[in-house]
Amino acid sequence: MSRPDRGPSILRFAAPQNFYPLAGRLAPWFAGIAAVLTVVGLWLGFFVAPTDATQGEVYRVIFIHVPAAWMSMFVYLVMAFWSAVGLVMNTRLSFLMSQALAPTGAMFCVVALWTGALWGRPTWGAYWVWDARLTSQALLLFLYLGFIALTRTIEDPRRADRAGALIALVGAVNVPVIYFSVQWWNTLHQGASVSLTRAPSMAATMLAGMLVMAFAAWAYTLAVALWRVRPMILERERHAEWVGAVLTREAQRQGGRT
């Protein structure tokens, strides 16, 4: 069952036994970067950035809200990308990667909706308005939940991989359609609704804080996805010899520690 090494190219890491230790080595680094960037970003956002002229202090939630919303959309694209790679190249690792990303994407969706509601209450006077962005964000959350539910319900791992990949691609094709239709619907029904767009003149520190937070979200996503994918790899490949070797090594390390 062991496959021949594909030479010294980057593709070598497409093999699970090579990717597993690599992911283990990279994940703590990304986690560290995420922690540092989050501290810097929050410090910029909550202490350095000036108070907004029209919205006061409440606007500061955008330092979490906007990066989370960006990330939730971006993660779906990455998921669809790995799904397509998996279907075309038949690499199991790609499917695992898209499944490892899904919960994080859904989490960012929830964060974006939650912070949106917190911001909406003082600004619009309601936790929820049927704003185009909020609505599409909620629909995106449903797409994530559908993907997660489908991959978890199917017991045969290979069917789960492929079915999940297909629905991720179908979703990715539909996301622009959904977004466009919701926008259209929103303009018809609400007229000039309050938009989430930021004030046109944004202080440089505000932008900096938001970008730093966005990078923090990236690093966090990478760390969590790599951490999540490791046990998935072990579970899938548990018939392979290298997994046995890894497990004995880890058991020894645990034994040595206690």
């Binding site: 069952m1 017991e155 045969d156 791992p157 290979r158 899938r236 548990r238 018939h239």
Partner: peptide, 8 residues
């Protein structure tokens, strides 16, 4: 080689 569920 044939994998059924997660059994080879």
């Amino acid at each position: 080689a044939c994998l059924k569920g997660d059994r080879l």
